[in-house]
Design a protein around this nucleic acid. Sequence first.
DNA 1: AGGATAGCCTGCGGGC
DNA 2: TGCCCGCAGGCTATCC
Length: 291
Amino acid sequence: MPELPEVECLKRSLEPHLLGRAVLGVRLRRRDICNSWGLGKRGQMVRTPFQVSALLADDSIVRLERHGKQLALTGSSGRVVCIHLGMTGQVLIRPKGQPFPYGDHVHAFWSLDARAGTASQWMVFRDPRRFGRIVALPSEAALRDHHWRLLGPDALTVTADHLARTLADSTRAVKAALLDQRVLAGVGNIYADEALFNSGIAPRARCSRLQRAHWDRLAVGIRTVLTQAIERGGSTLRDYRNADGDRGQAQDTHNVYGRAGLPCLVCGHNLASATVGQRTTVWCPRCQRSP
DNA sequence: AGGATAGCCTGCGGGC
DNA sequence: TGCCCGCAGGCTATCC
């Protein structure tokens, strides 16, 4: 469930813990959630045998960067670890020596040094369903030019121009297009439904039928919904927590997601539900229209 | 080639 | 009470 707002809130909550912090060592329980890329002989990116030391061991963290739903940690060596939370992934900061309150499914531990006012801590990656991934890369250039090369622009800054240009000839349902990370990065099922409600566009509307005014409203709708969710700390439906274990509050203000059959908060008409783009989709048939 | 579909994976709630 | 089934949906691989 973590989409762009949840990953952004995770990033903001991790930064005070991680920036400038030394990684003393890394322990990995599951190797099958990790990938590693390196530079090949002709300068191309190649898959390399995974080594735990590639996860910023003996490094210190100098930067956190998010694109869409992915979060990258850069070490002072220039190496990068990119974390993708999948459905149930969590990154948590916990003091060493205290009982760990989150049960099983912790796949990786980073040992962080003690610093002024702070005891030594663990950063842990936990992911019950294991849809998440940890990717080691040799540089930020490799991150942007290789690992993130197929992702569309970050949804927080998406423009009507980009949406119109990218999707004008597409016959897909607009909701399916919003879920496609190559079109824009960061929108998942929750915020796709919320953004479409905000813009008054039916999820099954064909992209090629939409006009300039629709793209204008949709771009604003996407940015607004995501920005407001970030301000509320993201949506916690079940699993999402920030680095400190706190829940978000944005789920309390959803207009349509999870409200199938309930009255529309704007017009009172019962909200409809159907599968669109292989995802459960909820919308208001009165407030949202197909051109 | 764009678009649809299957598969990965665990927890939980509903039904019996 | 306990078991089974369906569902949740991020993405990749594969098919049409």
